[in-house]
Write a protein that binds this DNA or RNA. Structure first.
Length: 665
RNA sequence: GGGCGCGUAGCUCAAACGGAUAGAGCAUCGGAUUUCUAAUCCGACGGUUGCAGGUUCAAUUCCUGCCGCGCCUACCA
């Protein structure tokens, strides 16, 4: 509704300006006034017109206001400041629509969307950086689904890379374990923790003697080839660790539909198919001399084509300096990571002409199945891939690799697909020096002076995801036990879990993507101030009002006879006296608008801000207006309706963030 | 060297396309509800938005140059 009013306003302004001044404004800028007293929408267009019309902005604004005429849903327009036009909506109309939960269907047809996120190397425990990725990705999936889009969630598993090879070397060479012993170890509850430590040990082991790196090379080669003891061990390890990752993410209500694995990209010859296309399309060139002699290379993304070669393009022998070359196929004939990623992305868009085998891998408590790729799989499986649009939630460090994949698509002529390929880029999670010290790491003086220190799986340096979740659970549980000792054990556990998840998910979403999170336990473990529990608590309070008053909060105001008349709403929300409560209604009305913004800008942080703002306004309202003791019945009904609407919207917003509200706190 | 990004209150972060008095949380200090539970609320303190220019009616936002920091820049993934 809020969005529709804005569009209607923009349309009318644009028409008016064209008719009156014979000017086409490319875009009517509509912003939100700094204070509620100024109305609901503000337009600075008179400033822009002033220059073109050679008239004072205030003069123009006056002309527009007097000439614009009545507009459905709007009360009036006002001149403010140096020439702003402020628009006031009919509060009762917007409020009525919100109270009745009128949601115009967001008719976004579009095809299926594929969101890839998490993609954790299956060789060690997940850490805080992976949590940021998964929470951003999962929230984006929820945003898209809220907007009515069909979404597939994929988690790419690099089970044949160096990282897995290193842990294999750790077990087989460093620890001299048998396959049976490894199988035994893999059954322990937190096998991924065991691998975390082992991975760090292997890295140190390599440093003792460079010859040992050959052990890694042999392991890597064996794993890529498959059908041997080393590959079997690698598979055993990566499957066990992967299962742990799914369990960890499941604790946060994060589910995946499909887990494509690199082993299948290799064994099902996805790369061969892609390689043919890339050669034929002239995207790859074979180097016959220089540093990259014997390699197939393509232009590094982001390097400009020299203007002089523009005309010579179809002669194919475009000269790339070594600096600008990205090696896709090594001189020994093996393909690197980017090549495999190109093949995978051709598959995503249904352009490869090959498909994975599929089998069920993991069943979620809610009953959904997570599928995994196999060489030969079940005949009956859901259709994955062949989507219209993709979002890859991958940290900013991989921007260049992502752009190379996009350039490869363009090189093959798939411009439309390239246009619908979004690298959902975000900054890493690092540790503050203080946090690193708390964890017991020894820091150099140089590190101590840094604002933050990068997490390193290779060094075993970081905060493990499950450790953080455990800490949050313990802390939340302590609070719940103190506040609600009478509640049953299971109930208290459930409340603590929702609070812990709420705190973590909110924490990861409150920062904008471009901000490096300098992780600090004190902040992450906080349940006060701008946190998830703060917003959850607002909903709990709202629920309590209904509970104490003997009403059902979900049913309140739903029966037609319950609905507050437009006249009563107008009376309660009007003027200066109605401003502060209206501000709360207006904020609640903006929810779907904010969700659109989040999707358009791939920025879930706006949603977190919105949730917090809504909770904050509600808490102020809660404190200022006693509701159950309100003597005037009609006033009381209005206040209860306010609570019901805000409670419903805030619950929705939190659900999109993957945050569930406990019944009591 | 080249590419990308960041620099805002003591700390951690906001500020949609350039817009009205740059806002929150934390920390510190001072207060509040015998009432719908204080995981709350109110107030105070706190700013030359890294520096210098430029464009504009208007710059935290756009442009240029500097300073500082981070990431990327492997025949690793």
């Amino acid at each position: 509704m809020y969005r529709h009013l804005e569009r209607r306003l923009a349309q009318r302004m644009s028409d008016f300006v064209r008719r009156t001044y014979a000017l086409d404004l490319p875009k009517i800028v509509i912003e939100q006034p700094p204070r509620i007293e100024f109305g609901e929408y503000a337009m600075p267009l008179a400033f822009e017109l002033a220059k073109k019309l050679r008239k004072a902005p205030r003069k123009i604004a006056e002309e527009i206001i007097s000439g614009i005429g009545p507009l459905e849903g709007f009360e009036k327009f006002e001149l403010a400041g140096a020439g702003y036009i402020n628009a006031r909506v009919k509060r009762e109309e917007l409020a009525s629509a919100l109270a009745a939960d009128v949601r115009p269907r967001a008719a976004i047809p579009g095809g299926k969307i594929l969101v890839e996120h998490s993609s954790i190397n299956p060789n060690k425990a997940a850490h805080v950086g992976h949590l940021r990725n998964a929470i951003l990705g999962d929230t984006f999936v929820r945003l898209l689904r809220f907007a009515g889009r069909e979404v597939d969630v994929q988690n790419y598993i690099d089970n044949t890379g160096v990282q897995v090879a290193d842990v294999v070397v750790g077990f087989l060479n460093l620890q001299q374990k048998s396959r049976a012993e490894i199988e035994q170890l893999a059954r322990q509850e937190r096998f991924d923790y065991y691998c975390w430590d082992l991975y760090a040990q292997v890295s140190k082991w390599y440093e003792q003697d460079k010859e040992k790196l050959q052990v890694r090379q042999r392991a890597l080669r064996a794993i890529e080839e498959g059908n041997n003891e080393t590959a079997a061990v690698a598979d055993l390890i990566s499957i066990a660790v992967l299962r742990r990752h799914l369990e960890t993410m499941d604790r946060l209500d994060i589910e995946y539909d499909f887990l494509p694995r690199e082993s299948e990209i290799l064994h099902l010859h996805f790369w061969d198919a892609a390689f043919e296309k890339l050669k034929q399309g002239g995207v790859l060139t074979y180097e016959t001399e220089g540093k990259n002699k014997g390699c197939w290379v393509m232009r590094r993304a982001g390097t400009a084509k020299p203007a002089t070669t523009e005309h010579a393009e179809d002669t194919e022998g475009e000269q790339l300096s070594e600096e600008d070359q990205k090696v896709i196929v090594r001189s020994n004939g093996t393909v690197g990571y980017v090549g495999k990623d190109i093949a995978y992305h051709l598959w995503k868009f249904g352009l490869l002409g090959r498909d994975f085998g599929y089998r069920k891998f993991y069943r979620y408590p809610k009953g959904n199945d997570c599928w995994i790729s196999t060489s030969v799989g079940a005949l009956d499986h859901p259709h994955f891939g062949g989507v219209a649009e993709i979002y890859n939630v991958i940290d900013a460090r991989q921007a260049e690799a992502q752009n190379t994949v996009i350039e490869a698509l363009r090189g093959l002529g798939f411009n439309q697909q390239a246009d619908h390929y979004t690298h959902f880029s975000y900054e890493m999670v690092a540790l503050t020096p203080r946090c690193a010290a708390e964890l017991g790491y020894e820091l150099s003086d140089e590190d101590k002076s840094r604002p933050y220190i990068e997490v390193s799986g290779r060094k075993g340096f970081g905060v493990k995801a499950d450790d953080l979740i455990d800490a949050l659970l313990t802390s939340a549980r302590k609070e719940v036990d103190a506040r609600h000792p009478q509640l049953a054990e299971g109930k208290r556990a459930d409340i603590a879990s929702r609070i812990a998840v709420g705190a973590l998910r909110y924490f990861m979403l409150k920062f904008t993507k471009s901000s490096v999170i300098a992780f600090d336990f004190k902040e992450a473990l906080s349940f006060e101030g701008e946190t998830g529990p703060y917003a959850q608590y607002a909903v709990v309070r709202a629920t309590n009002i209904f509970r104490k008053g003997g009403f059902n909060p979900d049913e309140f105001g739903k029966r037609p006879s319950d609905l507050i008349s437009s006249a009563d709403l107008a009376k309660s929300l009007a003027g200066e006296a109605g401003n502060d409560i209206w501000e709360l209604w207006l904020a609640a009305a903006k929810t779907s608008y904010v969700i659109d913004q989040c999707i358009a800008t791939t920025e879930p942080a706006y949603l977190a801000k919105h949730a917090f703002q809504l909770a904050q306004l509600f808490n102020t309202f809660y404190h200022r207006y006693p509701i159950l003791t309100e003597a005037d019945e009609s006033r009381k009904k209005f206040l209860l309706e306010t609570v019901a609407v805000v409670r419903r919207e805030l619950t929705r917003v939190l659900a999109v963030m993957g945050i569930n509200v406990p019944s009591v706190m």
